[in-house]
Simulated scan of single mutants.
Amino acid sequence: MPGMVGRTRRTILKTAAAALAAPTAFPAIGRAQGSWPAKPIRCIVPLPPGGGTDTIGRRAMQRLSEALGVPVVVENRAGAGGTIGSDVVAKAEPDGYTIGIATASSHSAAPVFRKDLPYDPVKSFTAITMLGTTPYILIGGPAAGATDLPGFIAAAKAKRGKVNCASVGVSTLGYLLTKQFELLAGIEMVDVPYKGSALAYPDLMSGTVAVMLDNPSGSAGLVREGRLTGFAVTRPSPVLPNVPTFESLGVKGFDAVFWYGVVGPAGLPAEIADRIQKALADGFLTDRGRETLRVMDVEPVMSTPTVFAAAMAKQTQELRALADRLGIKPTE
């Protein structure tokens, strides 16, 4: 009994101490949220500078900085198909001062490919907004051996298993869709992974690799300049109107799109997430704002956090089903 009384007393004292501390702790959190943002915000872009994700991320963060009145510093943390940078966001304090650019690869496709993913694409984050969607484009250089899609498919069939195809990693949506394209076209290529699409462009132009399934936001300029060939797109592209769709060239059902979004760590206060979403929506859902994204072949979305979270979860289920059909299993 004396031991039990002692333990009970200690428990009561600890509870009382916690109760006394609580009134000072919780108002401090409230004050922090009320004064947010009071210092620069860090935005993690999980791919290298120069590619589509980096370009879209910087454009969005410039608009967010203007709306909030504080600097938003972009930090590129590339590697593993965007999962390294995304993990940095997942492990950050949910105080509104670290956010990140999410993509269909880092959050919808990655769990399909990796059992050892260091984060849960839904539970480890607070969804803020889907910025927009963009099509895929098959681009190529001299090693492709053709200037149109039927010609490339014929050339690839003649060199089955010998055509090098660039990707930004085997845990990405682009990789999964490349495998789907190979199945639909009856070809087989060799994957050559890069840390980001911008790093693959020189090798495409030099002939080190033949083709890549990319997003126009990064490579449209190279196609317009004639430095790379645009073989086909998954949906009509306003920035590359002369590039036909896969559907029109006989590759039926190959019409997937890629999305860019903004996320924060799990536990980010809803008030902060809503404020970021509103600032971006106000900036990009105007005629002028839409045009700043459409010139990069990105169709603005700016969904609410709830809608964005549901869309990510739904796409992950769909991609798991696609991977099963292609016989692709997650690796350790």
Score class of each variant (00 low, 15 high):
49 P>V: 09
266 A>V: 11
14 K>Y: 13
323 A>M: 01
315 Q>W: 09
67 A>F: 03
312 M>C: 02
92 A>Y: 11
97 Y>W: 09
146 A>F: 12
260 Y>H: 14
178 T>R: 10
104 A>K: 00
263 V>Q: 07
139 I>L: 07
5 V>E: 14
275 R>Q: 09
44 I>K: 12
331 T>I: 15
62 Q>G: 11
103 T>H: 13
12 I>G: 05
103 T>K: 07
233 V>I: 06
49 P>T: 06
313 A>S: 10
108 S>L: 00
128 I>N: 04
47 L>Y: 14
13 L>C: 06
137 I>K: 05
309 A>D: 05
127 A>L: 00
181 F>V: 04
58 R>K: 12
13 L>S: 05
222 L>V: 10
154 A>C: 04
141 G>E: 07
301 V>F: 11
261 G>A: 10
4 M>C: 00
207 G>T: 09
214 D>S: 08
288 R>P: 00
68 L>V: 13
172 T>M: 04
102 A>R: 11
291 E>H: 02
38 A>C: 01
63 R>Q: 11
228 L>M: 13
54 D>M: 11
99 I>K: 09
204 L>A: 08
249 L>D: 01
70 V>Q: 14
301 V>D: 15
281 A>G: 10
283 G>C: 08
63 R>P: 04
220 A>R: 12
97 Y>I: 09
195 K>H: 13
284 F>H: 13
271 E>K: 09
332 E>L: 07
120 D>H: 14
136 Y>K: 07
103 T>L: 02
311 A>F: 14
253 G>Q: 07
76 N>G: 10
223 V>E: 11
88 V>D: 11
183 L>M: 13
294 R>T: 14
128 I>F: 03
187 I>E: 12
201 Y>T: 14
185 A>C: 08
277 Q>H: 15
298 V>C: 07
77 R>I: 15
14 K>E: 10
273 A>V: 11
255 D>N: 05
89 V>D: 06
316 T>V: 02
80 A>C: 04
52 G>Y: 00
267 G>Y: 12
268 L>W: 05
26 F>N: 06
42 R>P: 04
276 I>P: 03
226 G>W: 07
194 Y>S: 08
150 P>A: 01
135 P>A: 05
224 R>S: 12
165 C>I: 07
231 F>P: 02
166 A>I: 11
